[in-house]
């Protein structure tokens, strides 16, 4: 479960003027009533485009996100941790399969999505452009990055597009062990030697800024997404999701005796919201545009996988099989 705050460009709603007003009203009424939209239902072009973009980003995040954690399978401490991490990474790649399928129902083929990932046209969660230096980094990802993703995805599972909601329900159910596994790993570090505690503290210090970026730009500066909220493509603002994560996990981190590298982090008892130092959104933009420490490596690994798998795909190609859009 790696889907983070999605990046949305400023939404241009002028294409809505070309839509049939009666159909648009019926579509919006259906969503308002809490009904799901299915692939063959009428939908505005903008809804289709934004959903493809969001689901595709989520799918890419799952396969790219498997890379920094996958790095640690061979070096995980002990046989059981290796088994667990291997199963978790396998799950994440499986989640990508489910999500690509959901996006395909909207008419974009899987190969187009992979092409767009490799060419840099499609984005994935920014956090995976950072390196996992130590085992503690892997534990941070398993516990807290997954936790952040769960906050987002539990909300999105209540969205309006049937195939995406069904994929997310399955994904969230499969996640139950990931979060417990991540927390278990962190408890072992936290209750271990001074060196182990220091390792996890250093991981927190490295990952806190990317974690705050994970939920996307602040509502004050992010693209206007009211229409996406109305259509239940997006189920909460970036700041709402970030606040929910802080509410659930900052107390748990503090309870373990770790500190967070933000002197301004505190919950305002009046507003019931968390206050924090504004994340560096310029860095967020730089990383999302390819200047992060691992962007090039992540895409290069995917490109090599693509190239090395070519002979397998060619060998498997059978004239009787044909790509068609999935049904549901």
């Amino acid at each position: 479960m790696y889907g983070g705050g999605n990046t949305f460009e400023a939404i241009r709603t002028d294409s809505l003027a070309q839509e049939d007003p009666e159909k648009l009203a019926a579509f919006e009424a259906k969503i308002e009533r809490g009904e799901k939209i299915e692939p063959t239902d009428w939908m505005p072009a903008l809804y289709r485009k934004q959903l493809i973009r969001m689901i595709e980003q989520h799918a890419h995040s799952e396969i790219i996100g498997a890379l920094p954690e996958g790095t640690w399978i061979t070096r995980a401490p002990g046989f059981k941790r290796k088994l667990s991490l291997m199963a978790k990474v396998q799950d994440e790649v499986g989640h990508a399969q489910l999500l690509y399928s959901a996006a395909e129902t909207l008419g974009k083929t899987r190969e187009q999505m992979i092409d767009d990932l490799l060419s840099g046209k499609s984005k994935y969660s920014n956090i995976f452009n950072y390196p996992a230096f130590t085992w503690a980094d892997s534990c941070f990802i398993s516990w807290l990055v997954d936790a952040g993703a769960i906050v987002n995805q539990l909300a999105n599972a209540k969205g309006s597009y049937g195939p995406y909601c069904r994929a997310l329900e399955r994904i969230c159910a499969e996640e139950s062990f990931h979060l417990k596994y991540g927390h278990h790993c962190v408890i072992f570090l936290a209750t271990g030697t001074d060196k182990q505690r220091q390792m996890f503290q250093e991981a927190i210090n490295r990952w806190w800024a990317p974690m705050m970026h994970f939920f996307g730009p602040s509502d004050k500066i992010s693209a206007h997404t009211e229409i996406l909220m109305k259509w239940k493509v997006k189920m909460g603002t970036n700041d709402d999701m970030r606040n929910q994560f802080l509410d659930m996990y900052v107390p748990k981190i503090w309870e373990l005796g770790f500190t967070l590298p933000d002197p301004n982090l505190k919950k305002n008892p009046t507003t019931n919201k968390w206050e924090y130092t504004e994340p560096d959104w310029e860095e967020f933009k730089r990383v999302i545009n390819g200047e992060g420490p691992c962007n090039k490596e992540r895409i290069e690994v995917r490109r090599i996988a693509e190239e090395r798998g070519r002979w397998v795909r060619e060998a498997l190609k059978a004239p009787q099989a044909a790509y068609v859009t999935p049904l549901a």
Partner: peptide, 10 residues
């Protein structure tokens, strides 16, 4: 880019 329709059946 990938070879056009370099993907398997559904």
């Amino acid at each position: 880019t990938k070879v056009p329709l370099d993907q398997l059946g559904t």
